[in-house]
Amino acid sequence: MNPKIETKKLNLFYGNFHSLMDISISIPAQSITAIIGPSGCGKSTLLRCFNRMNELIPEVKIEGQILLDGEDIHKPGTNLIRLRRRVGMVFQRPNPFPLSIAENITYGLRVHGTPEGQKPADIVEKSLRGTLLWDEVKDNLNGPALALSAEQQQRLCISRVLAIEPEILLMDEPCSALDPIATDHIEDLMRDLAQKYTIIIVTHNMQQASRVSSYSAFMLMGELIEFGRTSRIFKNPGDTRTESYISGRYG
């Protein structure tokens, strides 16, 4: 199995704080990988390494390698803009821009340019259909995105990323601001999207990880404790720390 993205001995420091320790993980393509672990274990930090968002924070130092399709994303001369196009991100709180619904979708096209032979209007429709939002908003494409419900906003944010045709979707607790029904809808959507995209989701919700993911990584205090098929990790964890976290003994 060819990994879509992998890290080799990845270390990350915030100033003097050693946040990620020797993380080596290979994430398979076209599947959902969940990163679980207690708050502060570094799971969001790891996620933000994949599209190099950590570099926006001052005093962050990164060592080790991250390979996307075998190519080091920290290599000098790497096109950061292209990297962030290939590796899209959905945030914990829905963050649609204070623009219209259509403008939110076309934002990425204005950054990267509209692919030849395609019309922005078609991409708007396709991206919104991709998250099943189209039928709800098609008559109001020029209405403000901020007027949508929280779930619709999160769908819009996913559509916004789909519009620039990424290969990987990073999701940082994408359902934590949503109610259970909306969470259910987004999870269905994720299973759908995993046919085409490689999805990495950070979640503190163990049920969610076991429901949607094919692979799970358990992290604790900056270390990757265990990584493998979700069914195996949850039924037959190889490490006692994984076992006690999953059975709810701490976290």
């Binding site: 926006l56 803009i81 962030r84 945030f91 649609p96 934002y107 990425g108 204005r110 950054v111 620039i164």
Partner: peptide
């Protein structure tokens, strides 16, 4: 809100964009 800024940068936009 900083979340707007993060969302934009994550889509690949430069600082000026």
């Amino acid at each position: 809100p900083r979340s707007y800024w993060e969302g934009s940068v994550a889509l690949g936009a430069t600082r000026w964009q």
